[in-house]
């Protein structure tokens, strides 16, 4: 498990977190590549079903940000 990296599914609100992730890019802030962002119109869009479904499809962590 030494090199184990969790696979993270991120639901990012288009208005804030997704824009912030873009900004992190503009600032070239480096972070680990094990995150797969999905842009949602609002964190309110994230149904519990999405979260469970992400886990079901093998994500180790789910991040809802908004």
């Amino acid at each position: 498990m030494d090199h184990w990296e969790p696979r993270i599914m991120a639901f990012l609100c288009a208005w804030c977190s997704y824009a912030a992730a873009d900004l992190a890019g503009i600032n070239r802030i480096q972070y680990p590549p094990n995150i797969r962002p999905i842009r949602v119109p609002c964190s309110a869009r994230v149904s519990p079903k999405f979260i469970l479904s992400a886990f079901m499809h093998g994500s180790d962590g789910v991040w809802v940000s908004g």
Binding site: P48, K49, L52, S53, F55, M56
Partner: peptide, 28 residues
Amino acid sequence: FVDESGPQWVGKSIDPTDTMIFHILRAY
């Protein structure tokens, strides 16, 4: 939701993951 098939939110088997999702979602 357990009977929906498009999209299928939760498998219809008694696979432990499917079962757990059923119980969690029902509680929610």
